[in-house]
């Protein structure tokens, strides 16, 4: 259950973290979309791995949920959403 939930929660977080990276880097996000995809998949795997480290499941799953919310809020402060090519 812990790993299944970790897998589900890690996917949006990895994508949003990559989005934040795209917002931070001084190059157009459209130009490195494929690399973002590969990096997001790798990050997703590593985040699931992270779920196994703490002794208790609840804190890490809550932390993942909070991190998702924080990443989403941080993304709202970037000009990424809705900015076309």
């Amino acid at each position: 259950m812990r790993y299944a939930l970790g897998t589900v929660l890690s996917l949006p977080l990895s994508l949003m973290l990559i989005g934040l990276l795209a917002a931070a880097l001084p190059m157009p996000w459209q130009e490195w979309l494929v690399l973002q995809l590969v990096a997001a998949v790798l990050l997703w795997m590593l985040l699931v791995l992270l779920v196994a480290l703490p002794a208790k499941a609840k804190p890490i799953l809550v932390a993942l949920g909070v991190a998702n919310l924080a990443a989403w809020l941080a993304l709202q402060a970037t000009p990424l959403y809705g900015v076309g090519a």
């Binding site: 949006p12 994508l15 989005g19 993304l75 076309g84 090519a85």
Partner: peptide, 10 residues
């Protein structure tokens, strides 16, 4: 998901 969460419909 990337469209929904990060970059939008474009």
């Amino acid at each position: 998901l990337l469209g929904a969460l990060v970059f939008g419909p474009q």
